[in-house]
Amino acid sequence: MASIEFVNVTKEFEKKEIIKDLNLRIEDGKFTVLVGPSGCGKTTLLRMIAGIGPQTSGSVLLNGKDISNIAPGKRGVAMVFQNYAIYPTMSVRENIEFGLKNNKVNKIERKKLVESISEAVGLSEYLGRKPSTLSGGQRQRVALARAMVKQPSVFLMDEPLSNLDAKLRAQMRIDLIELHKKLGTTFVYVTHDQVEAMSMADTIVLMNQGLIQQEAPPEEIYHEPNNIFVAQFIGTPPMNIGELGVDGVRFGFRPESVTASTEPVESPFTLQGEVTTREMLGSETLYQIRYKETSFMIKSLIDKFSVNQKIHIGVNSDKLYFFADDGDRIHKDHIHYRDYFEALRGY
């Protein structure tokens, strides 16, 4: 059981600020997912919690207490490394029980723990093997087992499923959610994968270039993005953005919130455009629509539109977003919100 707090944390590498004055509270017992583009500082953040890459300034608190002077092994933190970092010269069993041995757990207890954990991650048959004889996915599971067996109060995971195949990944995703429910410990989970983030998180922390863009539950991140970056990062394909032509304001709508038809549609925002590409995804079809100089992606259940066909699209008012020239969201209570909305009618 532990909550984690970053207070005015800055991290520099060779005089370059990677994390700038970050404040973040990770709730006790929550499944928190860190997402963001490659190189935004997710791993750096995890390493600060673990104590293996300490912050340049500011403090990291565990349960309200500064942990800067506590050795990594004494923080009750376990970490699954992005590149696994399993001990290459030890067998799978030795890898898993190494931490237990260091903590002087007795032999019977150790055996019981190792066996139940390896059962849970499906490694029972491989306990005697050397890591070099395992596949990437199996190694990743060794790394998971090694972290799980220590029964930590904080679980740090750096893209732990990235090397598994789609089926195993889906399975492990469910297993991890269940594990989290069962243990009730704090999970901090890093991923590139939005689906993982959306499906697993209690709270998503979206970062870009060392700054937190938004910190909210998955629904809120999706429906109420704080700024253009969040709006475009979450959702595939990303939100369509267009220039409104007033005060540098931009508007946006998600490809999946569009009504498309060959007939004119009744909506606050409509336009008629030409289909330029068509991608059949199965249950849905993805179209690129050209309108004047810009193009928009739309996702529709209707798959009968063809390339070069002219179609009408419409978006409802609650699915339209406005962003100021600095990228921040303009909310409904903004004094000019109605003006921008009216401006869009003439787009």
């Binding site: 293996i52 190494f98 260091n102």
Partner: peptide, 25 residues
């Protein structure tokens, strides 16, 4: 890989054991 040493640090490994069980092998 420095990551191996970091993993060992998280596993609460003593300096001697790091040398004996990780570095030497």
């Amino acid at each position: 890989s420095p990551n191996i040493y970091e993993a060992a640090a998280l596993d609460n490994t003593s300096k001697f054991r790091v040398f004996h069980r990780i570095t030497l092998p």
